[in-house]
Design a protein around this nucleic acid. Sequence first.
DNA 1: CGTATTTTGTACCGATCAGTACATTCTGTA
DNA 2: TACAGAATGTACTGATCGGTACAAAATACG
Lengths: 224, 224
Amino acid sequence: MSTRSTRAARSSSRQTTPHAPRQSKGEATRQRLLTVAADLFHAKGVDGTGLDEILRQAGAGKSQFYRHFPSKEALVCAVLAQWEANLSQSMTAPERPLDSLDALEAWLYEILEALEADHCLRGCPIGTIAAGLDDVEEDARGAVRHCFGVLEARLREALAAMQESGELRAEADVASLAHLVLAAQQGSAMLTKAYGDSQPARHALAHTLNYLRSFSSSCHPEGN
Amino acid sequence: MSTRSTRAARSSSRQTTPHAPRQSKGEATRQRLLTVAADLFHAKGVDGTGLDEILRQAGAGKSQFYRHFPSKEALVCAVLAQWEANLSQSMTAPERPLDSLDALEAWLYEILEALEADHCLRGCPIGTIAAGLDDVEEDARGAVRHCFGVLEARLREALAAMQESGELRAEADVASLAHLVLAAQQGSAMLTKAYGDSQPARHALAHTLNYLRSFSSSCHPEGN
DNA sequence: CGTATTTTGTACCGATCAGTACATTCTGTA
DNA sequence: TACAGAATGTACTGATCGGTACAAAATACG
């Protein structure tokens, strides 16, 4: 983000909750800002998106923005928190439990289809923000780390559930497998954007799932 | 990059070779600009890096820059071309052939160690540029696609060589395996930067290599 | 009603953005 | 030495950057 701030960005607490009380109207404005910003950060990156454009699309003024967020970096953190909440929720939805390799496969391909819906012009919304981090954005960096941490924990829980149910062998190291799945997902999103084509990602994900299935209880035994 | 250009950026040919003749001194300046820009783009992203900072670190003036590059986007393309040349060369070096799974493993871990040398604060230099692309940067997008295409081709050739030598089974689909390796590498780099720690990447890469080895001729037979 | 607090509109700040203009200095060659 | 072309220094443009100041309007609540 290249940090041209005067004062606010020097503070070091990741704050999602704002500094001012609010009523329903203000809360709606805050949500509009968040939604517009999430979309623009996804499409053009944090540094490629000016506050003015966010404000224009959200139909808000500068003063409204700074009432709800102390700085642009705080907005980035809030956007990350929103993505994290959405994703985490979709991974723990009781009506669609992530408790089998088939379910994990479906979840990964759903994400890929979302990228295709954007004509393969965008990558992972979280990954895009992560890639744009520079050395001095401490708050945003923490938010990104937390975001990936939560996502990874959900994956680990899902794999552990498969172990519990007997689908995966007990010797499988679910913690490191979660890292593999996360890396495969991020790499797939990156390739999809870079190539403007989801086929490479499909290949990579197919192999990843093929590998995971080699840890099935019903499969030939072999260490991780 | 948010494209605030007046004229030059509307052209549509990816040009690495410049528009002006040059002597050795000018060529040296061009190289300095390229090297500094590559480093800054890697550290702070394209949009996070101003021309003025590149010029300052390279000890050059505006006029020197625009003598060698028609626009900032052209500089991005030239930086990508340089990364591609470096990488492609390192993958085809005759004294260190990428012709076995052990060699591929060493190559992947070398890249990871380079990230560790940056204190896990940066990602893949190419991936960082790719992630920052926005919808309108056609030239840079083409350069990124070409870059990944070359990298992928080298990986495919390496895997094919392993097939030829008998290390990999003939039924293995080297094209899709190359996609897997590329995705794993990019995802690993992303996780390393996001976590500020290379351990998750090590896990992901270890699993990927473990999977590749399951295609060894000496290994239990199984389709891809 | 009246008053306090939110919410909003607008004008502004200095800094930086990519890119241009133009004059000066250097360098290779004749 | 003279001259052409290359290399460089510097000052500038208008737009946009993130952030601030402050007053007007809307809303809640007694």
